[in-house]
Simulated assay, not measured.
Amino acid sequence: MIAAPTVREERAGPVVWTGIIAVTCLLLVLLEHMLWLVLPLIFGIVMYYTLLGPMRRLLRLGFSRSVSSMLVCAIFFGLSALVLVAALSWNAGLEDSGSWSDTLALYANGGVAFVRNTMALLEVKFPILAEMHLTSLANKRFKVFTDTFAQRYLTTILVTAAGWLPSLLLAPFLAFFFLRDGLRFKKFLARAVPNAYFERTLFLLHQVDQTARRYFEGMLKLTVLDTLVLGFGLWVIGVSSPLLLGFISALLAWVPFIGSVVGCVMVVIVAATDAPSNPLVAYGAIAVFILARLLDDFVFMPITLGRSLKMHPLITVLMIFIGGALSGVAGLMLVLPLLGVVMVIGETLGRLMTNPRLRARHRYAKQLREKQASGDLKV
């Protein structure tokens, strides 16, 4: 008895990967001009994968899909509203002791004082820096920036934030309809596929969904781990609101490179303001942040995201730089999940188009349909 030959799945070749990278770059360029829709879509997808687990538990308990999605969304958004009310009441309590402008000015002055003290210390250690008058030059630049910040930047920031608010309100609606009608949308796509490719198409849809789910769930787990590590380290050295600072820094880390730098600057400014007479606290905050980033890159990242996007590190680093060059900060944030989804689609389509068995089945099915359609016709 002769065993049937096994069909070996070939990995994507250079042509397929060239197409994957080209399509990813094209989508990044297009998405840059549709950020008003892309950002709510990202937040909606994050909410969708956050609420998908609880909704599946309700489905296993016997609830319908519509009821499960409504219950989960109602509980989640109700809790979010309570948190928002608590934050606003806390903000009202802060306004009794001082305005937000006074608080921002306090932290800005603390950060500037830390930089000045650091430069003065460097001038003492390195006389060449004293000859360059580094401290006086930096003081002039700081004075010009602080005097013109409100006129040049504050109004633009507030107007931009107000313009983004309506589009961000789309995120809850997108999350609700993803939960309720996601399965229906998958069936709609599957019905348009020829029968010969039906099984592989279902596999493709499943893989795309699993890739996106693993990525965003991994990012959420990574955010929790970073928050705990940073919060604990800042609490040990005596920085105020350690968990809040850790959480904001972990969220900013979703944007590669830039987010980490902004988070580190924020932590150092708060530490310098809390202990203006003890610069070691600010230096300790820098050390804590660097240690947290090292743990994130070499321990937490492989555990949470390393198994979700199976890409070579060289491709990952190159695509991060390409995403930043094409679409700025949005490209840095979107390039990895977008590349992961396009990679799954491209590799699966490449296998579909190059599989001789599937192409033969498709041709045979077309011949049968043509023969059946013309069976009662006579010349």
Rank of each mutant, 00 (worst) to 15 (best):
L122P: 01
A113I: 03
L84N: 02
L121I: 06
L84W: 06
A108M: 05
V115L: 09
E123F: 14
S101C: 03
T118N: 08
S101K: 05
L106C: 07
T118H: 07
F114I: 09
N91G: 07
S99W: 05
R116V: 11
W90E: 06
E95N: 09
L94H: 05
A92P: 06
S89N: 12
L94E: 10
E95M: 08
N117V: 00
N117F: 05
G93K: 08
A113Y: 06
M119S: 11
A108Y: 02
A113Q: 07
A113W: 00
N117Q: 14
G111H: 06
N109C: 07
V115G: 02
L84H: 01
A92Y: 04
L121H: 10
L122T: 00
T103W: 07
V83P: 00
L88N: 00
V112M: 03
R116H: 10
L121R: 14
L94R: 15
N91T: 05
L94M: 05
R116D: 12
E95W: 01
E95Q: 12
G93P: 03
W90L: 11
A120F: 02
S99L: 07
L82A: 14
W90M: 11
R116M: 14
L84Q: 04
T103P: 02
D96F: 06
D96M: 04
V83W: 07
N117H: 09
A105E: 15
L82Y: 03
L106W: 12
V85T: 06
V115M: 04
G110E: 05
